[in-house]
Design a protein around this nucleic acid. Sequence first.
DNA 1: TTGAAAGCGCTAACAG
DNA 2: CTGTTAGCGCTTTCAA
Lengths: 329, 329
Amino acid sequence: MTVTIYDVAREARVSMATVSRVVNGNQNVKPETRNKVNEVIKKLNYRPNAVARGLASKRTTTVGVIIPDISNVYYSQLARGLEDIATMYKYHSIISNSDNDPEKEKEIFNNLLSKQVDGIIFLGGTISEEIKELINQSSVPVVVSGTNGKDDHVASVNIDFEKAAQEVTQHLIDQGAKKFALVGGDYSKKAQEDVLDGLNTVLSDNNLILEDALHLTGAESYKEGMKVFDEMKDNLPDAVLSISDEQAIGVLHGALDSGIKVPEDLQIVSFNNTRLVEMVRPQLSSVIQPLYDIGAVGMRLLTKYMNEEEIEEPNVILPHRIEYRGTTK
Amino acid sequence: MTVTIYDVAREARVSMATVSRVVNGNQNVKPETRNKVNEVIKKLNYRPNAVARGLASKRTTTVGVIIPDISNVYYSQLARGLEDIATMYKYHSIISNSDNDPEKEKEIFNNLLSKQVDGIIFLGGTISEEIKELINQSSVPVVVSGTNGKDDHVASVNIDFEKAAQEVTQHLIDQGAKKFALVGGDYSKKAQEDVLDGLNTVLSDNNLILEDALHLTGAESYKEGMKVFDEMKDNLPDAVLSISDEQAIGVLHGALDSGIKVPEDLQIVSFNNTRLVEMVRPQLSSVIQPLYDIGAVGMRLLTKYMNEEEIEEPNVILPHRIEYRGTTK
DNA sequence: TTGAAAGCGCTAACAG
DNA sequence: CTGTTAGCGCTTTCAA
């Protein structure tokens, strides 16, 4: 029923080895033979069985993607970048949602290995000890996109959150901000630490401090953002740095709904820069992370590992910009 | 180096067939033997090779997902639903972006078949002739999520857009709307037709009509929405039905930026109901499509086909609700 | 430039 | 309840 390499060989009066060579673009085939084989392939509508190929060659041209939540705008934009480059290099992607749960991440990781993927892209704001160990013992290359893996000796692609935070903080101070809040999230522990460092550096340079009560976290959703705003309502800051856009928008609407003027009384800057930032009024000022590129460069890096190309730098830092829109003065 | 079923068999002093039985949960194994094998499996850290298994059993426990754009909020929410059910049934998903391009869809489809996926989920607002043919000739089951495939004899899960459009239209007329616009998109031809039918039915019942000039389309993005608003600026309707949320928000902001009052002078209802609808002010009135469920039910349907379970109804219509929020009177 | 043959690691009759 | 034995469809030496 299904056409196999053997059928093609018989019909073309060559051996299956020759058909295999033609299919794989091996140059050691006489042009005539090649043509004949290609004709038969077309005639029989032969399509190589990737599974058999994978078993024989030990390469599946499939990569695994571990992602916290594909319906999260931030991650889905990364995913699109990943996927486009994977396609460009003829890889398919198996995508699995981890909800940022170390147990699930571990299980997915092992499942991917048993599927014999050629490489794995890990997305997630936190590299847990378990995952770190799995990565370092992995038989296939792993690249982290969106989080810095340098300290954990893991190849990665991201932006310099600390520097971005410094720039943002200084700008806000220049605009008169004195009392800051930091709104972090469960998804992005690493980025949060970096932002915190950057924020604190500049604050102390200016003889300011971040009150403990104004260092808040939430699940990085819109609703959580509104909740976070409630928590700081009685001790209102005049500037908020938020890791997540959705959460920042929650804070923004919480403020507006309470009659607080943005940006006059409260300035807000977010660090995600999903397409949401332009879709609210006032538009959200944000650090521009090149999300698509972070995904794309991560996948490109992975292909280099998979092809055993030379790697100049395993921890890529992509440039960022800051766009001051309607939520800052 | 890698541990195979053979290593386990030798170490446990049984045949590989027995190991295979244990791994696959076959009940015909003496508990003692099972325990011994399991011990060895753990000791050797044996992990079955899914590729070899796929080749031998002709089942890969992998499904393919063809999706227009994973970074589109609407589709990423569907994808999350799909994926969760797939995981529940122990399937992995290979996800590929088609950009709604029939050529790409076709190529992806064939690639997925050569990967020997056990089934395919097709997402996309339009079922082109080519795809329809591929689906109908496919050796593996295919289910369409988010679009009605009944007319094309394709299993599908979606909501009744026509009915929803009728309800929305009647409500808007009751609120005083007289001049309607329909904003469709490239992604959702099918839904658009149904909405158009529903709209026209109710309009003519009320002796109203949809002007040709007010039947517009765009690429279903925020920016396109603003552009669409510009197009209707000189011939302003008092009610807009928009297929896509992003585009509806574009229209909304286009209107607000021009000083038009929403909902007083212009009412807007969208049909997508992504999480965006609550993230703008005024909040967008919308038809609530259970996106997650549409994905989930689609995948469940596919698993039924893959397991050759009985299918009661290949074209599932899920219930919808309508939520009138801030963009309607 | 081509072919023969040995697997890749596993499942699935079949026999016992 | 367990083992033997063919393959699954392809890649990849090794020889010719």
